[in-house]
Computed example of a mutant assay.
Amino acid sequence: MVLFGHALLEQLQQPHKALTAHVLCVPMPAVGADAGAGTGADPHPWDAALAACIDGWSGDTWAAKPFTPLPVLGIPGWWPDNADPSFYDDVRVFRPPRDPAAGAAAATADARAAATAWR
């Protein structure tokens, strides 16, 4: 698994359990540690894999937000508290995937409730 991003770095200055990234799950090619960042016009293999995945996506695809929520402090090894299995019992943070039939209104209501709960 490869995680990358930038907005979380600022938020991690004041971490909280519900800090969540929205991730795009893309199969990545295996590359050696010496793969480098590509040379000349050749992109890194991961760049090419991501570009191939999203090439041709329309505005409708992006509007549908094809991302998966990932509570980053739940990633094993990223936060000392997650070594205790009860860390994951908090259903406000760790919940089952949303039913796509629930629609955008339910997602908005969930996001609003989560933001209010963690202020």
Rank of each mutant, 00 (worst) to 15 (best):
Q11I: 00
I54F: 02
T116L: 08
A111K: 08
F94P: 00
S58I: 02
A113S: 06
F94S: 08
P80F: 02
R98L: 09
A35S: 13
F87P: 01
F87V: 01
P97N: 10
G77A: 04
A101E: 13
L70V: 14
R92H: 08
G38C: 03
E10R: 15
V72Y: 00
P71M: 09
A113P: 00
W46N: 13
P100F: 06
L19R: 14
R112P: 00
P80I: 04
M1D: 05
L19Q: 09
G32H: 09
W46C: 07
A18L: 02
E10M: 08
R119S: 09
D84W: 00
P80S: 12
D90F: 06
A102N: 07
V91R: 14
V72T: 05
L12G: 04
W62M: 03
M28D: 04
P69D: 08
W78N: 10
W57R: 09
A51W: 09
E10G: 15
A113L: 03
L73Q: 05
A102T: 08
A63P: 05
A21Y: 09
A52F: 03
T68F: 06
P96Y: 08
G74K: 10
L8K: 02
V26L: 10
F87D: 06
A107K: 10
A35C: 11
P15M: 03
K65M: 11
A49R: 04
A18V: 02
A51Y: 08
H44K: 11
A83P: 05
P85F: 09
P100V: 01
D110C: 01
A109W: 00
P69L: 05
